[in-house]
Simulated scan of single mutants.
Amino acid sequence: MRDHNFASPRRRRFDDDDPTFLKRLSHDFDTAWDASDAPSEDDDTYTTWDAPGVLHGPEPRPGWVVTELAARDAELGILKTGKEADVHLVERAVPGGRRTLLAAKRYRAAEHRMFHRDAGYLEGRRVRESRVTRAMAGRTSFGREAIAGQWAAAEFAALGQLWSLGVSVPYPVQLLGTELMLEFVGAPDGTAAPRLAQTRPSRPELESLWWQLVDGLRVLARAGVAHGDLSPYNLLVDGERLVFIDLPQIVDIVINPNGAEFLARDVSNVARWFAGKGFAVDPEPLVVELLHDAGVR
């Protein structure tokens, strides 16, 4: 991890620790995302890289990102189902040319979403228009749609910033409506990297994964943020590399009155898993260190 000085992004909430994982795998908003902006789910469509309203990931882009307008997107199946979003495997390929696999994270329609546990993550977060803030607080239909739009945009913004800072996260390729296209983390044949919870590392592997985790948490803390929902289910193991995923709920440790508690819970969750595998770690000193890095204590 590299040391950086940077402004922290806005923070948000998303819980997707759904155990039915199918083998794979800063913006302000005045209005809600319109679900009609999302691309169709046809089996084979032209690339949405240049679609109206699309946002692209940070530059310089990785060389594997396919930006050619002749490319086509082919649906290959569902990678993961969750309470608020599903993740699909998509191949973006230029006919007769290069191709890449992407994870398309699609937030559900407002009537199917579950926002009953998001209040703590929304503390200190505002949008420009007071009517939108009121709708979000009242959980009206429009408010739920605005919250959903924030989740997708929040994850896109967080991943872009953290990727630029050297944190091990999937590269955010693009955002269109409530669909987030991400780097697929796994093998070229479409086999996804397992979640940390699904692995059985050796002692040396446990030690390496733990210190990769600590390095990542330090970068987040220096940004003044915490993952907010960190667990062995929100970390992937790609070969020897630990990858942070599911970041729309990222919490501003300073602005959010519960920020320190979110950070402490993140560390305790993962430390408990490592201890259960025989690599005992004391979370308290790390929490103190991270809060100091964040400028809170």
Rank of each mutant, 00 (worst) to 15 (best):
E75V: 01
L220P: 08
E207N: 03
A223P: 04
A74F: 12
Y233W: 15
Q198T: 06
T178S: 14
V127M: 13
V219C: 02
V287L: 02
T178L: 10
R99S: 04
G138Q: 11
Y121A: 14
R126V: 12
D229G: 06
S8K: 05
D266W: 01
R297M: 15
L217T: 03
L175C: 05
V287M: 09
L235V: 05
A70I: 10
A93K: 06
R272C: 14
R125S: 13
E41S: 13
L175V: 05
D37E: 12
I253W: 08
N256V: 07
D252V: 08
V288Q: 15
G77R: 15
R106C: 00
L55Y: 06
N256S: 04
I245E: 04
L236S: 05
H27T: 15
Y121M: 11
Q212M: 10
V296D: 15
V270Q: 05
L159K: 05
R272I: 07
R203C: 00
D17A: 15
A280I: 10
A154N: 11
A146C: 07
D3T: 11
E84P: 00
P9L: 00
V54Q: 06
D282Y: 05
Y171W: 11
G124W: 07
D42P: 10
E68H: 03
V94P: 05
G228E: 01
S202H: 02
R113M: 10
V173D: 09
A51M: 04
R13W: 13
A197C: 15
A197N: 14
A74W: 06
W49L: 06
L79H: 01
W151V: 01
Y46C: 11
P52K: 01
Y233Q: 14
R11K: 13
S8R: 07
S130N: 10
V287H: 01
G276D: 00
P172F: 06
G166N: 02
G295A: 09
T133A: 13
K277A: 12
G186W: 06
V65W: 01
H4V: 03
D43Q: 12
H27V: 15
G124D: 10
H227K: 03
